[in-house]
Amino acid sequence: MTSRGRTWTHALADGAVGDAVPSVITADGTVGHDVARLIAVVPDPGSPYPRARNGEVGLREGLALAEAVTEVVAGDAHLPDDRRRPIVAVVDLPSQAYGRVEEMVGIHQALAAAVDAYVSARTAGHPVIALIVGQALSGGLLAHGGQANQILALDDPGVVVHAMHKRAAAKVTLRTVEELDELARRIPPLSYDVADWARLGLCDRLLDVDDADDPTERDVTTVKEALTAAVERARRGPRDLSNRLDSPGARETRVASRRVHEALAAQWRRVRDDDGTAPQ
């Protein structure tokens, strides 16, 4: 079954694309002077989990992501941290899996394991790059791509980053889809348009490609160059997510975030000085 996640992983891979489970594929791909580990969640129509057959992140996928990332971290543990391999999360997923078995077994814990693995990789010095080539929705994005040092996205109408798909978001917020569309024109975080999302300060580069479904040679070169630059920025930048509040987009759109962060830090210092816990 084709998917953008699978297509782009193959396009960027140097050789064979492997899988531990059919829905999580991995490959090595040269990015500048590095050989990056590519990881993607892809549809598996034969999955024994009916609610996770379209590329959703379910129990199996959360576990496989955690294992795939942890394997890279363990494999490079002996290297100086500036030589550890980049990890590229190729993101094209409709959501997390919505199912009863998933909840019973503890899908939140499977996603937590994936998040933990990605954060561990980032803090260990692995440049973690999210490359959004299709949908990037909700808990799926939190588990796969959301913890990246750098987030790249294709500038294409098929690329959608959001907390919930439109119909459900309209329902939960007691609106019609038309009302939601109207609001999204005025309120950037509500928008389903990738260009609006890119202005929130979360996107490090928006990439122009000719064909997001079937990338041309030039498209692959464009993306590889962008990945190479992102790896360099990640290695130079912080290993936490503080860059997301300092980006040019964030300075414009996340004014409230920055104000809260500064106010809290100032008050925290004052209380710490007052209550005698300040360092001597």
């Binding site: 954060v119 909700s138 980053v161 907390a163 975080p189 929130l200």
Partner: peptide, 23 residues
């Protein structure tokens, strides 16, 4: 979970919360 009236910024801050818990 994410406050849907703030959709993408809510999603972004939840990722930041997760990272901060781990640190």
């Amino acid at each position: 979970g994410v406050r849907l009236q703030e959709a993408n910024l809510g999603l972004a801050t939840v990722a930041e919360v997760c990272s901060a818990v781990l640190e």
